[in-house]
Design a protein around this nucleic acid. Structure first.
Length: 265
DNA sequence: TGCCAGGCAGACA
DNA sequence: TGTCTGCATGGC
């Protein structure tokens, strides 16, 4: 198993990002539209070789998308670790999660996205985020919009009702409070994140893992709770994998949800 | 029609 | 400190 293979399909279907869109498939490749921060790219992945061809200039590919896909991290150590220990479920999860990476997303985008994700379902999370981008983001190309920065939102959202119609539900007041919070309070530190309205342990952990690449985070949501109860009798010890806790959580979540017949795409 | 969703805040014991 | 409940709204 090649630890450094990347699968766009696996990543898009893993619930760690909400702006990867499947475009089409041919006999030889899959085509994805990937939006992140203020960039959007078409990515062609060869089905045989796994090679990914990005339709953007070299500079953008090198300075934005290569870090985004976490190309510089060698995942071999965690593959070796999992294969060395006797955890059948985790081994199966690793085998199933071919090409999984933990993306290096923008911190603000990850924080907002996972604030919206709470007690919500994936299709609606995606819909709400797209609505937010369409209303407040910049038109990058052919009606594809950037993720609005905090500064832009702070300027354009002057009252709570400016967020009406996005399907935010009760999270609307949390997002409004986040937009209006002092920028110095929005930093990638767990304890500080917990002080923000609507940000609890799960959202803070996801923001740090996906928006600050803090691999020691181990977000536990309803599915991870079910998994730990179901597979590990209510207790899972992450410590042997602590340096890679975020990756371990990701493949467990991905595998368990697919075992239960739920595709995220 | 009812349950559930990548949870959180607030009340209460 | 731990447990319970209400919360908005759409997918299934």
């Amino acid at each position: 198993m090649n630890a450094n293979f990347i699968s766009l399909q696996t990543i898009a279907d893993s619930g760690q990002c909400f702006r990867m869109k499947f475009c089409k498939e041919t006999a030889v490749k899959q085509i994805w539209q990937i939006c992140a921060k203020d960039k959007c790219v078409l990515a062609h992945q060869d089905k045989q070789t796994g090679h990914i061809n990005l339709h953007c200039d070299v500079e953008e590919a090198v300075y934005f998308w290569r870090p985004y896909f976490d190309i510089s991290t060698d995942y071999q150590p965690i593959y070796d670790k999992i294969n060395a220990l006797e955890d059948k479920f985790l081994k199966s999860a690793l085998e199933y999660s071919k090409g999984m990476r933990i993306l290096r997303q923008d911190f603000w985008e990850a924080l907002v996205s996972f604030l919206i994700s709470q007690n919500n379902n994936i299709p609606r999370i995606k819909q709400t985020i797209e609505g937010l981008c369409e209303r407040f983001g910049r038109n990058m190309c052919s009606n594809v919009y950037s993720f609005p920065t905090k500064e832009v939102l702070d300027k354009q959202v002057t009252k709570l009702s400016d967020l009406d119609g996005l399907g935010l539900g009760y999270r609307q007041k949390y997002l409004y409070a986040l937009i209006k919070a002092d920028s110095s309070a929005i930093v990638p530190e767990y304890d500080k994140l917990l002080r923000l309205q609507g940000v609890g342990p799960k959202v803070a952990s996801c923001a740090l893992l996906y928006g600050n690449h803090d691999m020691t985070q181990f977000p536990v949501d309803t599915w991870m709770k079910k998994l730990i109860d179901d597979v590990y009798g209510g207790h899972f010890n992450i410590e042997p994998y602590r340096e890679w806790a975020g990756f371990v959580q990701q493949i467990m979540f991905y595998y368990y949800r697919h075992l239960n017949g739920i595709k995220l795409l």
